[in-house]
């Protein structure tokens, strides 16, 4: 059953040099209880997309398209309307837990506040719920820790507090934007486990935004690859990792050094840098960096088309040539 449906979402920001087209027509769906990964490099528009879904963009942002939560349109709603949905039905986890938390309240109070914002429960009951939530996300001594301030906790613990706040109202959907990027690997493992615990407890669907393909591989069912403000490939996690049909995805996978492979195989870097979103040339935005590029790529921008299966779609004119291709042969 479709929980969230994003259709042809675009986001533009006016600048002195013209409009910056951060998101250029993104469409995807998230089913109930499902986990969808959005992967892309810095500036690909993955964060802006999720901020647009939550209605958290600055006022000067120009948003068009449609975002529907269980059939209910979210684009164009007032801030007051949206605050009934944010935190209760869609919760968000940001990269930096220190800026998500309020430094002058205890973490217990902040979790209780999230509960009381949407449910008319007593302060006492809300605090008890806060302690339970701290336990679920793996904070030892939750009763004691609820009385701590954010600065008394480590980065990993703070991020688990943010997860506890996100799950406080049993949301239908949790959007996590680079939730572990600032953390060390062993702490990242703790936080990802807390996130899984939160999903198991609430049954929430997850949109996981990250640049780390390893995290995507382990924690998502389906993947959307973003490049220059568009989705360039979507599919199940296995389709994307074992049979990518967009040169960019293939290049990303080939450029990763892997802990499970020994020796000095050459990595296959993607040359060049992502294009400026200010005045994109016509044609495929990846064309200047693509080793397979031809005349047609610079004239016509490819749209997402079905490849190996109806759900495995890629935005490349020549995706059929990538069947069985290896990154080191192409790049």
């Amino acid at each position: 059953m479709t929980l969230l449906s994003v259709e042809n979402l675009t986001v533009g920001f006016p600048t002195e040099d013209g409009q910056l087209r951060a998101v250029r027509g993104v469409s995807y769906e998230v089913n109930r209880g499902e986990s969808v990964g959005i992967v892309g490099e810095s500036g690909s528009g993955k964060s802006v997309t999720s901020l647009a879904i939550m209605g958290l963009l600055p006022r000067n942002a120009q948003v068009t398209g449609s975002v529907k939560l269980l059939g209910e349109e979210l684009v164009g709603r007032t801030d007051k309307d949206l605050s009934q949905i944010r935190g209760r039905r869609i919760a968000m986890i940001f990269q930096d837990p220190l800026t998500s938390l309020n430094p002058v309240y205890t973490v217990g109070d902040q979790i209780a506040e999230a509960v009381r914002a949407h449910h008319g429960v007593s302060k006492h009951d809300a605090l008890r719920r806060a302690t339970d939530l701290l336990d679920i996300v793996g904070i030892p001594n939750p009763k004691l820790r609820a009385r701590n301030y954010p600065h008394e906790m480590s980065g990993g613990m703070r991020q688990r507090i943010v997860i506890a706040i996100a799950m406080a109202n049993n949301p239908d959907l949790i959007i996590a934007d680079e939730p572990t990027t600032a953390l060390d690997v062993t702490v990242q493992a703790q936080v990802l486990e807390a996130l899984e615990a939160a999903r198991a407890e609430t049954g929430a669907a997850l949109v996981l935004i990250t640049h780390d393909l390893g995290v995507i591989a382990g924690h998502t069912d389906r993947v959307c690859v973003m490049y220059a403000g568009k989705l360039v490939e979507t599919g199940t996690v296995d389709e994307i990792f074992y049979g990518p049909r967009m040169p960019y995805t293939l290049g990303l996978l080939g450029s990763l050094p892997r802990i499970d492979e020994s020796g000095r195989q050459r990595l296959t870097p993607i040359t060049g840098a992502p294009p400026s979103l200010l005045n994109l040339p016509p044609g495929c935005p990846f064309s200047p960096r693509c080793p397979m590029t031809r005349d047609r790529c610079d004239d016509v921008e490819p749209v997402l088309t079905a490849t190996t299966g109806p759900d495995h779609r890629a935005a490349c004119h020549f995706h059929t040539e990538l069947a069985e291709a290896k990154a080191e042969d192409v790049f």
């Binding site: 480590s154 703790q190 390893g214 591989a217 802990i259």
Partner: peptide, 26 residues
């Protein structure tokens, strides 16, 4: 613990890997 915590960009391996989760902080 460090090695087991590194995510591998390989979904099948990731699903079956053994993770050693450390408690506490440095």
């Amino acid at each position: 613990a460090l090695i087991s915590a590194i995510p591998v960009p390989d979904p099948r391996k990731e699903r079956t890997r053994r993770r050693i989760i450390l408690s506490g902080d440095v």
